[in-house]
Amino acid sequence: MTGSLAKTPSNRVVILGALSAIAMATARIYAAEGAALMLVARNADRLKGLADDLRTRGAVQVETAVVDLEAAAADAPALMAVWKTRLGGLDHVHVIYGYLGTQEKATSDPAELARITSSNYSTAVQWCEAAANIMRAQKRGSVIAISSVAGDRGRQSNYAYGAAKGGLALYMQGLAHSLAPTGVRAVAVKPGFVDTPMTDGLKKGGPLWASPEKIGKIVRRAADKGGPVQYAPGIWRMIMLVIRTVPSFVFHKTKL
């Protein structure tokens, strides 16, 4: 932490689910720019390690908050206000946490289905709305949520997750519309296949798999530029257009 106190941060950024691979890649870009960061996740030791990393890489201020984001969503407005105070202002909020789960389990276990819905949609929108309300008042800033290409068409293999992520994207689209007069940005980023521990077990490799670093760059850029729904990388816009267009009588013959 060399001479950090005197410097003015480039941006003041809250990252929810800061320990995910995509969040970490995004945070490193902000750190190199000299941002002030509030990292929120459940594991205190891991947050400390990440905070050291980001300070070393150039963040002028790194704060951490140990919070279960699903359990604490009802307190979102109050917590968001506290974090804004700790950072001395609020420029960007990234809602990155989520839960993949398995469709098989969700089909038979109500708790799994509830967790998938809560993590990826119903609590996520609480945090987005709390952030948006602060920004609406200050007429400045951005709220960026991680959705998924799985949200573009319901598929037998992951429709619980897909529906929640798809709902989140729809929410962000509406939020962007409502914030348009204020100049505040709301964006849903929809990654395709990302090579993270969450997907370890799947067969990887090939042109459609992206690194968390590549997605991080898109997520960081989405805070400043682009429309309310952004595919990451952009090729997925075309792929999903095709997938949405396939008629059901064909689609239902696939195992996707």
Binding site: T2, L50, D52, T56, P197
Partner: peptide, 12 residues
């Protein structure tokens, strides 16, 4: 390779 965090760096 996933353990890729910097822990400290003394610029002096």
């Amino acid at each position: 390779t996933g353990l890729d965090r910097m822990i400290s760096f003394d610029r002096e």
